[in-house]
């Protein structure tokens, strides 16, 4: 049995998870998302990456960005490395893709602010 703290929402439920045959038994979760999270932690732990990307704009040298969906936990630093290779020179909007299908993970790196369009 493993104990997992849910990070899905600020409630932070402490859950117990156990393998029962091919299925999982999760206790302590307050909602369905907790159960999904606990199972994912056991089988395929994933995290988001929120960071900034360098820009060529002097008054806004960093543009906030994130991955469009969670990525495998052990790929976080690799994705950071990819993002650090990029310099944004266009006035991207919120939601615009900065890196398409980063590292073939099936997710994009997207801008999370429209700050460059406001310059």
């Amino acid at each position: 049995m493993s104990t997992i703290v849910c990070i899905t929402c600020p409630r932070g439920c402490t859950m117990n998870i156990e393998k029962a045959g091919s299925d999982w038994t999760v206790t302590g979760n307050a909602c369905r998302r907790g159960r999904d999270f606990a199972i994912a932690e056991m089988t395929d732990p994933r995290r988001t990456v929120c960071t900034t990307v360098r820009t060529t704009f002097k008054s806004a040298p960093a543009l906030p960005c994130r991955v469009s969906a969670d990525i495998p936990k052990d790929k976080m630093f690799d994705v950071m490395k990819e993002i650090s290779k990029v310099t944004v020179s266009k006035q991207l909007n919120r939601g615009d893709v900065i890196i398409k299908d980063v590292l073939g993970l099936g997710v994009d790196v997207i801008a999370t602010s429209d700050l460059l369009t406001q310059l």
Partner: peptide
């Protein structure tokens, strides 16, 4: 020194 330069971005 206050800052160590641009974020390394894990590079």
């Amino acid at each position: 020194v206050i800052l160590y330069g641009e974020n390394k971005g894990g590079a």
